[in-house]
């Protein structure tokens, strides 16, 4: 890992892009130094656990859950669509998902 962790403004812009959030220039200026400070702080855990320590993903052990394959009531189409920004018939209406060339 990097010895002195920090996040540059460009990296924050890249991460925001990956996370699908537009950030203004002012937000980038503000966030980049704050994220670097947080990162420096959390980087202190590097080297705390050795390779023999197993990772924990959940506090208590999980087992897969099965149930009988029987129909149970769910949302109606109207209920499922009730919070949609736009819908048409019984479908969610969304902006185009392909580029012009397709």
């Amino acid at each position: 890992m990097a010895t002195t962790p920090s996040i540059t403004r460009d990296e924050v812009a890249h991460l925001a892009n990956l996370a699908r959030i537009d950030l203004t220039d002012a937000e980038l200026d503000h966030l980049a130094p704050q994220l670097s400070v947080i990162l420096e702080s959390v980087a202190s855990i590097s080297g705390v656990a050795d390779e023999n320590t197993p990772p924990t993903s959940h506090a208590l052990p999980l087992t897969n859950v099965f149930r009988e394959d029987v129909v149970t009531p769910g949302l109606t189409a109207d209920e499922a669509l009730s919070g949609a920004p736009e819908h048409e018939g019984q479908r969610f209406k969304v902006p185009r998902i392909l580029g012009d060339e397709q």
Binding site: I45, V48, T56
Partner: peptide, 15 residues
């Protein structure tokens, strides 16, 4: 590995 993976291991140590 350096961040999330390490954090999951430290979580084990805390438990």
């Amino acid at each position: 590995d350096a961040y999330y993976g390490q954090a999951q291991k430290v979580r084990t140590l805390i438990s």
